[in-house]
Structures are given as structure tokens and as C-alpha cells.
Nucleic acid binder design. Structure first.
Length: 279
DNA sequence: GTCTATGTTTGCGG
DNA sequence: TCCGCAAACATAGA
């Protein structure tokens, strides 16, 4: 569910909810594996007393910078969500972790499918160092993208989903970016002409910024703080629109499975690569 | 009831 | 390097 725009929205909403400046007072775990590191014992020793000094995002990771130099990192994976509620509120279903705050509220992590993870580390790089560049950074240029694509034989779809290639794109925004750039997901990285690379760079930034502007894409399981939904699902051109007309040419949107993930595309606007590009 | 799909990531075998 | 597959899980829908 949550990709870069959804996590960015969550970070902004947590900010708006007043999380910065709050101090953690306690931690409880309702599903053991939700905490990746350290141990629960160590978390309960280290987290209380630390104040939230900043909230940021790297790729799909939400990062809370804490006053003792530690970093609390949260990855929502498929179904994770965060809420800030009065400590007296009933505990909702699928709540996996409860972090108590000094104003009598709780930061609660809910996660239906239990894939989400919490990390408390002294150095955020321990978690984020393997990530590729941020596609929406102002210093990420089309030339950077070209350099990263050069000499790669992988298909665009799995490559763009690879977080060590670019950080933050997931299934929705990859399909949307490829449609905007008129590129078939099976094209190989090193087959792109300069103009196509430029178009892909532009398209990725467009769909991500638009996703942020629309406060994320909410199908069924993505919610920001307090259950707030985004509206970007209304702005999608092809994702989950199989059979609907392509907004550009009217051809029915096609669905393929590539790299075990569903892929949506317009067969007219995104022509199949030449056979030499298909293994 | 059964089978399929789901917005993510990681680890394994080839 | 790269690919395919399975697993970590729960739920909705056909």
C-alpha cells in the first residue's frame, strides 16, 4: 500500500498532529515480530525519555529523530498505519505496538498483515544506506537516472521496484510513471534512448509529486493519521483500471503479470519492446 | 469451502 | 547480475 507519497503524507500529518516535541514514556508490543530491533527489553529501556525532534521520510521509511541521538524508523509494508489517540481509547483491532507519549496520548501502530516493522537504531543509515536516490530530490537529475540505467539489462518494471535503484516507487507509481513516459514495463534499462530516459525521469517525478499533492492513494488499506484517506486513486491513469479506456488514446488498459506483480499499461501508447529485448 | 489477489521486502536456489 | 519463487500474514471477493 504505502509508497513514497503515502509515507510523505503520513510524515506531514504526524507533524501536524503535534508529534514533534512529544516525549515517549513507555512502549508495548502486541505482536513480537513487529519490532525488528533491538529487543523489546532494550526498546523499553532506551525509548522512554526521548523526545521527538524531527519527522522525515527516506524512501518508504518513516523516520523519527530522537533527542538522545537514536532514531525510530517505521516501515508500513502492506497494511501498516499510525494513529495518535488518547491513551484511554479502546485498542483497535490489529494494533501491534503502542508507544505512550508524555501528553497522555498514544502513538499506535496497526498492521493487519503483520509485515510492518519498527526499528530503533543509533544510526538511521543502518536501515537506509542500501536505498537508491530520492527521485523527487531537486538534485536528482535525468543525467543521474541515465547513469544508473546504463549497462543494466533488467526490465524496467522490476528495476524501478528495486529500492536500491530508486527509493520510494512501488507498484502503483511505477505503472503510472511508465504510462506517462510511454514505456512498456518489459523494456530493458539499457535499451532506452536519451529522450525516453528524460521522459521517465519527468514522469516519475510527476506522478510522485501529484500523489503527494493528493495526499496519497487510498484503495482499501492506506490511511494516514486518524484514518484520513488520500484522493490520488482518482488521478490514476492505468493502475487497477484494466479494461477501461486509456486516458490518452482510448485503448482498453491491459493487465500483465511481471515479476510476480500485476502491471497495468496501454498497449498502444506503450508498445511492446522489440523481440530482442524479451528474453 | 476454495481459490485468487493485495499497495512490500527479503532470502534462497539456479 | 539477474530471475523466479516462497515466505512473512490477513482478508475480501469471485
Amino acid at each position: 500500500m504505502p509508497e513514497l507519497p503515502e509515507v510523505e503524507t503520513l510524515a506531514r500529518d504526524l507533524h501536524r498532529a503535534g508529534l514533534v516535541g512529544r516525549t515517549f514514556t513507555d512502549a508495548a508490543l502486541l505482536w513480537e515480530r513487529t519490532l525488528d530491533r533491538p529487543s523489546l527489553t532494550e526498546l523499553r529501556a532506551r525509548l522512554p525519555g526521548q523526545r521527538v525532534e524531527g519527522i522525515r521520510r527516506r524512501g518508504k521509511y518513516l523516520i523519527l529523530d530522537l533527542s538522545d541521538g537514536d532514531t525510530l524508523i517505521i516501515h508500513l509494508r502492506m497494511t501498516g498505519r499510525l494513529d495518535i489517540v488518547p491513551a484511554t481509547d479502546a485498542v483497535d483491532p490489529h494494533t501491534r505496538a503502542i508507544l505512550a507519549l508524555d501528553d497522555g496520548s498514544h502513538l499506535r501502530f496497526r498492521d493487519q498483515r503483520k509485515f510492518g516493522r519498527l526499528y530503533l537504531v543509533a544510526d538511521a543509515a543502518e536501515i537506509t544506506e542500501k536505498l537508491g536516490p530520492e527521485p523527487i530530490d531537486s538534485d536528482f537529475t535525468a543525467a543521474d537516472l541515465r547513469a544508473r540505467l546504463a549497462g543494466r539489462s533488467r526490465q524496467l518494471k522490476p528495476l524501478l521496484l528495486d529500492q536500491s535503484f530508486l527509493a520510494g516507487l512501488g507498484n502503483i507509481y511505477v505503472d503510472e510513471a511508465l504510462w506517462h513516459a510511454n514505456l512498456h514495463p518489459l523494456r530493458t534499462a539499457d535499451s532506452l534512448a536519451d529522450a525516453e530516459i528524460e521522459a521517465l525521469w519527468e514522469a516519475a517525478r510527476l506522478v510522485l509529486w501529484r500523489g503527494i499533492g493528493n495526499e496519497g492513494t487510498s484503495f482499501s488499506t492506506y490511511f494516514s493519521v486518524g484514518g484520513k484517506k488520500g484522493s490520488n486513486q482518482e488521478a490514476l491513469a492505468v493502475f487497477r483500471r484494466t479494461g477501461e479506456p486509456c486516458p490518452r488514446c482510448g485503448t482498453p488498459v491491459q493487465r500483465l503479470v511481471i515479476a510476480q506483480r500485476s502491471s497495468h499499461l496501454c498497449p498502444t501508447c506503450q508498445p511492446l519492446p522489440p523481440p530482442s529485448d524479451i528474453p
